[in-house]
């Protein structure tokens, strides 16, 4: 497999690519909401980092299934993002650092429990649990920030009705890329490209939610949908070309029908 021989991104590399733009994106939507369409592009790497963490851990065989680790990761990240919403606004300066650090700690502690107490033999458990939880916290914080407009008095606490959607949409975007690509010939390139497709779909969905959520978010919603749709077209083409390449290679690994 030629694709397998290509160098893969490490979890740390992807997390760094997710963390820095992710924090910038959250700060952008918090302090200057009109730039949300640009910030949307910066949040996509967090989806890739989360999907890669699921891939990294689930490849070892968890015994719980890929879906469970996705649900767990988002449970940590999104729960901590939701917890942060009732912190006194006077301490707003601690956000998003408090949430990201807390998610890293809870993810790492869970990984340590799984590795040291339950004795799971997964060498990347601690690192990738922490990265998964932190990536989902970045996504949840951003989506919450996107759905608020403080100048129009739409605060993050008002967005509580969107919590279930944030939770489920993030979970599916994180767990599905590996689940949808797994099997013989699964490789990081195809999984990450599918993750990018699902990231743009998720942000487009939240653009639509923003439209419905408040009149103050009309232009935010429209612009986010346009940027996400453009990203979706680009990523789908890239993902589909990877699928075609991999399928082509697989078509000739078995016996052609004429030889049976």
């Amino acid at each position: 497999m030629s694709t397998d021989m290509k160098k893969e991104f490490t979890s740390q590399e992807l997390y760094f690519i997710a963390l820095v733009p992710g924090i910038i994106a959250i700060l952008m939507v918090k302090f200057y909401h009109p730039v949300t369409p640009i910030a949307v592009i910066l949040i996509w790497p967090a989806f890739l980092s989360g999907a890669n963490a699921v891939r990294s851990v689930a490849r070892y065989g968890l015994g719980t299934g890929t879906a469970s680790i996705g649900y767990w990761g988002t449970a940590v990240g999104a729960t901590i993002a939701f917890i942060s919403q009732f912190i006194n606004p006077a301490y707003n300066f601690v956000s998003p650092y408090f949430e990201i650090l807390s998610a890293l700690i809870v993810g790492a502690v869970t990984g340590i429990c799984a590795q040291r107490i339950i004795k799971m033999k997964i060498p990347v458990m601690i690192r990738d649990s922490a990265i998964l939880a932190s990536s989902t916290a970045i996504i949840a914080m951003f989506l919450l920030g996107m759905l608020t407009e403080y100048s129009a008095s739409v605060t993050t606490v008002d967005a509580y009705i969107t919590y279930p959607l944030i939770y489920i949409a993030t979970t599916l975007a994180i767990l599905h890329p590996f689940n949808g690509s797994m099997g013989a010939g699964e490789n990081q390139r195809r999984t990450l490209r599918l993750s990018a497709v699902e990231a743009s779909m998720t942000t487009a969905l939240f653009g639509l939610i923003a439209l419905l959520f408040s009149e103050a978010l009309f232009f935010t919603g429209i612009s986010v949908i346009i940027v996400s749709a453009a990203g979706f077209v680009i990523f789908v083409k890239r993902w589909f070309s990877a699928v075609k390449e991999d399928t082509y290679e697989f078509a000739w690994t078995g016996y052609p029908p004429a030889e049976h």
């Binding site: 015994g63 469970s68 767990w72 449970a75 917890i83 809870v106 799984a114 339950i118 509580y160």
Partner: peptide, 22 residues
């Protein structure tokens, strides 16, 4: 609503750990 979702999150976090042992 927020307490409901936090309780749901705590539930999901804690029910995956035992599944590792099972």
């Amino acid at each position: 609503t927020i307490s409901g979702f936090i309780a749901g999150g705590v539930f999901l976090i804690n029910c995956v750990l035992p599944a590792y042992t099972l």
